[in-house]
């Protein structure tokens, strides 16, 4: 247990302090309660919860999953029980299990985000941060629709930031061509850092029925298949020196995690790997400790952005 709190793993991402740089991505780990049956999820740097909306959302029509070569297409559509469910039913257990929660929230307008933020005030001292889901490709309102408009990103970030006293993270999409502009506006709104990347929009078709393999027609692609795209996006945003980055997109091993940090990530998010290697976080944290020792680093953050590209 002590290993996972090795001081050399501790990182600051903007004003967010984490005991280690391994984070669980929203939608792939619940609120950490289910996985706690498999291992003690308190070892993880932070668990970003499934995105919660003001009211429960039923999600998209199935089928919602389709496996592609080394990738996973999903069109879940943010099925969730609503923010009150997190506050009343899950948070007490999250606290009891000493999980470090980052609460992911989803609104369809800045007004809804404001309302969500006001509901969070009473529990904000229990949270490491909130993450604004401004990049889900599987909903008609909110998500990427809101997150692709620079003005909306700044407005939403600013509203939440002003309502709460905890850091705000903005989760960004790789599907927009104005990534750096969006990140800058998140910064203007007061974001502490950004999470990058959400899933890539994708599609699969059944050649026997001529029907799309997902009930929602299109979905978001994750898994090892998207890792190179994620690295390139992180590298480009890091070079632009906008905000610290939590890097994610197909990380399956500690070697992948190191790559993301070299590209510019201050912390790394594990997503799809949670479905495949249940204890991935343990192996990755241990791998990072070994890497630190082997390379005589004072802290894992020493390698952030240290890729030798064109120098």
């Amino acid at each position: 247990m002590n290993n996972f709190a090795d001081g050399r793993l501790a990182v600051n991402i903007g004003d967010i302090y984490l005991k280690n740089p391994v984070i669980m991505c929203s939608g792939t780990f619940g609120s950490g309660l289910e996985y706690n049956e498999i291992y003690e999820t308190q070892i993880i740097g932070a668990v970003v919860t499934k995105s919660f909306s003001l009211k429960p959302m039923e999600g998209n029509k199935p089928p919602r999953l389709c496996e592609t070569s080394s990738g996973l297409l999903n069109s879940i559509g943010l099925q969730n029980e609503g923010i009150e469910f997190f506050i009343q039913d899950q948070l007490p257990f999250v606290k009891k299990l000493k999980i470090s929660p980052i609460l992911s929230i989803l609104g369809t307008s800045s007004l809804e985000f404001a309302e969500l933020a006001s509901k969070i005030i009473k529990i904000e001292h229990e949270l490491i941060a909130v993450e604004l889901n401004l990049s889900c490709p599987n909903v008609n309102k909110g998500g990427i629709t809101l997150g692709s408009i620079p003005d909306s990103v700044e407005e939403v970030t600013s509203i939440v930031r002003k309502t709460l006293n905890i850091p705000v993270i903005v989760k960004l999409s790789p599907n927009n061509d104005n990534l750096i502009e969006i990140a800058k506006r998140a910064k203007s709104g007061g974001a502490a850092c950004v999470s990058l990347i959400n899933t890539l929009i994708g599609m699969a078709i059944d050649i026997n029925t001529f029907k799309p393999k997902l009930g929602n027609v299109i979905g978001g692609l994750s898994g090892p298949a998207i890792k190179p795209v994620a690295l390139a996006k992180i590298f480009s945003l890091y070079k632009a020196e906008v905000l610290p980055i939590i890097g994610m997109g197909g990380i399956f091993s500690w070697e992948d995690a190191i790559e993301f940090m070299l590209a510019g990530a201050s912390a790394v998010g594990l997503g799809t790997v949670n479905f495949v290697e249940y204890d991935a976080a343990i192996n990755i944290i241990n791998g990072l400790i070994d890497f630190i020792s082997k390379n005589n680093l004072n802290n894992i953050s020493d390698i952030t952005g240290k890729v030798k590209a064109g120098q």
């Binding site: 939608g27 792939t28 780990f29 619940g30 289910e34 996985y35 049956e37 499934k50 039923e58 999600g59 199935p62 089928p63 919602r64 999953l65 389709c66 496996e67 996973l72 999903n74 879940i76 099925q79 799809t272 949670n274 479905f275």
Partner: peptide, 27 residues
């Protein structure tokens, strides 16, 4: 039976449509 990812209820990928006592649809 459905295509599954996590297998433990977190990803909400393997849903089927159900109806409750109040005639409300739930995945």
């Amino acid at each position: 039976e459905e295509i599954m990812a996590c297998g433990i209820g977190v990803c909400k990928g393997c849903v089927i449509k159900t109806i409750d006592k109040d005639n409300k649809y739930i995945y």
